[in-house]
Computed example of a mutant assay.
Amino acid sequence: MPIPDSEEDEQLQHERYELLHQITEWVETPMLVLGFAWLLLLGIELIRGLTPALEMLGTAIWIIFILDFLLKFVLAPQKLPFLKSNVVTLISLVVPALRLFRLARVFRAARAVRGLRLVKVVGSLNRGMKALANSFGRRGVGYVLALTSVVLLLGAAGMFAFEKDTPDGLHSYPEALWWTAMLLTTMGSGYWPRTPEGQALCFLLSLYGFTVFGYFTATLASFFMGRDADDPEAEVAGAAAVAALHEEVRQLRADLRKGRETGSL
């Protein structure tokens, strides 16, 4: 008896999902290593530029990213949802092609080279976020600390690249690092970016800093409340005190039930 077309399509999609999941697991560790190497190369490029050897290494990693993306796109059963969920990744992969094929002169004439760098920085941060998520599972303070460190280091490199030629700008990477750290802690400083790209990156860093600052505040509050809860004389009830209270209630119910049974006899 022939299988209906709808069942064949569902079976084919299921097989493609399984194959995509299996290939993703196989390449997870190598792509994780290459993702961090890409972030390192981008930081060096923004701060002092790349040597020809490092440029070749970056191009090789970029080609591997392209092949990985194309493979996942071909295997993805739903093409449009896949592209929608990877828009930033796709744009960050297209940007290096402009330089590779020497189309950057057109954008240089349009005074948009820094804009391309901004897209590359944001796309690389997005890739770093995914790499860290695969490492830490998007859980715990360790993931947030590692992600914040990446945002701090790469964000400072981007701010230095955008603002180093402006009057009274960020003329050294340590200065940009200090400025970015103050921004992420929501303290700020007396300097504000002059270039449009620096202002855009400053806005994104401010949003991240505002979100993460609230997370760390809640984490610290939970930590100190947990310490107070462990103290028997504290006003806050801890897990042990609640468990003891539950045990007392359970014992009282058992005694009441036993008293009723004795009275009925």
Rank of each mutant, 00 (worst) to 15 (best):
P2D: 11
I3M: 15
I3R: 12
P4L: 02
E7M: 09
D9I: 15
D9R: 15
E10I: 05
Q13E: 14
E15K: 10
Y17C: 15
E18G: 02
E18W: 08
L20C: 00
I23L: 09
A37C: 07
L41H: 01
L41A: 03
L41I: 05
L41Y: 04
E45V: 02
I47R: 14
R48S: 15
G49R: 10
P52R: 06
A53Y: 03
E55S: 13
L57Q: 10
W62I: 02
I64P: 03
I64E: 01
I64Y: 00
I66A: 08
K72C: 09
V74I: 15
P77R: 06
P81H: 10
S85M: 08
N86C: 00
V87D: 00
V87E: 05
V87S: 07
V87M: 13
I91P: 00
I91D: 05
S92K: 02
L93P: 00
A97N: 03
R105T: 09
V106S: 04
F107D: 00
R108T: 03
A110W: 05
R111S: 10
V113H: 02
V113Q: 06
R114Q: 11
G115V: 08
R117D: 05
R117Q: 09
V119C: 06
K120V: 01
V122R: 06
S124L: 08
N126D: 06
R127F: 10
R127D: 07
M129K: 12
M129G: 08
K130M: 13
K130W: 12
G140I: 01
V141Q: 11
V141S: 13
V144P: 01
V151A: 07
L154T: 11
L154P: 11
G155W: 14
G155N: 08
A156T: 07
A157H: 01
G158N: 05
G158D: 06
E163I: 12
E163P: 09
K164V: 06
D165R: 12
D165A: 13
P167F: 08
L170N: 12
P174Q: 07
L177R: 09
G190M: 04
P193I: 08
P193A: 15
G198V: 03
A200C: 09
L201M: 06
F203T: 14
L204S: 07
S206Q: 02
Y208D: 03
Y208A: 06
F210E: 02
F210W: 11
T211K: 11
F213P: 01
F213E: 00
F213M: 08
G214T: 05
A218W: 04
A221D: 12
S222P: 00
S222F: 05
F223S: 03
F224K: 03
F224D: 04
M225S: 11
G226A: 07
R227S: 07
E233F: 12
A234H: 13
V242C: 05
V242R: 14
A243T: 12
E247Q: 14
V249M: 05
L252V: 13
L252A: 13
R253E: 13
A254F: 00
A254D: 11
L256F: 09
R257G: 13
R257N: 12
S264D: 08
S264E: 14
S264M: 12
